[in-house]
Design a protein around this nucleic acid. Sequence first.
RNA 1: GGAGAGGUGGCCGAGUGGUUGAAGGCGCCGGUCUCGAAAACCGGUAUACCGCUUGCGGUAUCCAGGGUUCGAAUCCCUGCCUCUCCGCCA
Length: 422
Amino acid sequence: MLDIKLLREQPAIVREGITRKGENPALVDEALALDEQRRQTLQHGEALKSRKNTVSQQVAAMKSRKEDAASVIAEMRLVADEIKALDGELRRVEDQLHATMLQIPNIPHASVPDGRTPADNKEVARWGEPPVIDFAPKPHWELLESLGIVDFARGTKIAGAGFPVFIGKGARLERALINFFLDQAAENGYTELLPPLMVNAASATGTGQLPDKEGQMYAVPGDEFYLVPTAEVPVTNFHRDEILLESQLPTKLCAYTPCFRREAGSYGKDVRGLNRVHQFDKVELVKMVHPGTSYDELEEMRSCAEQLLRKLELHYHVLLMCSGDLGFTQSKKYDLEVWSIGQQKWLEVSSISNFESFQARRLNLRFRPATGGKPEFVHTLNGSALALPRIVAALLEQNQTPEGKVIVPQVLHRYTGFEIIG
RNA sequence: GGAGAGGUGGCCGAGUGGUUGAAGGCGCCGGUCUCGAAAACCGGUAUACCGCUUGCGGUAUCCAGGGUUCGAAUCCCUGCCUCUCCGCCA
């Protein structure tokens, strides 16, 4: 959620930012009209309340003097009705304003390039070389099947399509990667959380999944819960409705969780193997930082994620997302993509974003400046470090042997306990 | 799941319809005293919104929502949460 004051004072900047994202800026004017209406109703109601309070005290005084207050009381009865009506009106206007503000997207940072589609994203870094393999590399789904380390069919039987079952060394590899990622995050100063895997509507609203992306989450029928689509939701909400001390910033948290996503509308495209599934594992980094440092913190987070890919010796590149490819809540975002030699394309394995105060305002998450004074909203960031399935896919493809076995990267040996699969 | 108790300011804790934004204490800030500190004493010490605006005025906030009343922290209803006991359970 943006600051209503920003809309009031610099509507042109907000409209331009929304337009850069390819969205319709009409909501700005709608919000401003509601804001104006809100203040008028508020002032009217408050004037009446002021009167009511004064008269009520007079009634008390009259009664203590044993005077008759009947006529004043009769008059106040009417005023009370009017106040009730105005309060109702105010409530409606405020609800409407709030609903409108929740639909206005965050605006892009100045360093974000203009653009409308993923083709306009800028490659800002590239590491390593595409691996050279002197035989025809198999896509990971063939390796998974021949090695017997993931079973899609049985996952479908148990739950449904897109719920793979990891088996034996496959399960072990998954667990090894999770532990490796968590250990690395700890070394980089992130405190590990093991959060709830279901969240309530307030949490999902805080990080921006609601109301905008409701259809992407699994809802639990009969209970007001959603399955987490990413650890971002429970972890960022950890400090919701709190005032942190400035000395607590930056607060750096990390968490492993499974992620549950309906992926509605993505059928048929890029869904083979582990490319896109309904449940997957991910380690997420989350930071709450001082507003003055959030873009430096974004780079720090990006380098944490990059380190992991380097240690796994995976060829990757970094994309700076253009304005039109930014999500609803994001001001600036990098995507990390690894090279899939078996599919001959890039696979997104990490997304690292700065939300500035957009989430913090929804979350009511502030800090008290060390110099004293009023609490200010923190800036929040998050980044995957990393999402597992496509890492597994790229890893298997890149490290396959002509015999169909897979060499496990050195850095994982102490976690897997084996060096080769197959 | 059943029975009971309770949710008041940064914290503890008074307050059962009328200057109560809320006693008292602790903490915190400023001052007096002191070479300095402690103690003691004096003063100050919530948040949000609205309006004029270096300051002031108004409104709201005693878990949340609704109700009764001229007037609610205080009475009534609903919800949420916490605690205790019983049951069930990894």
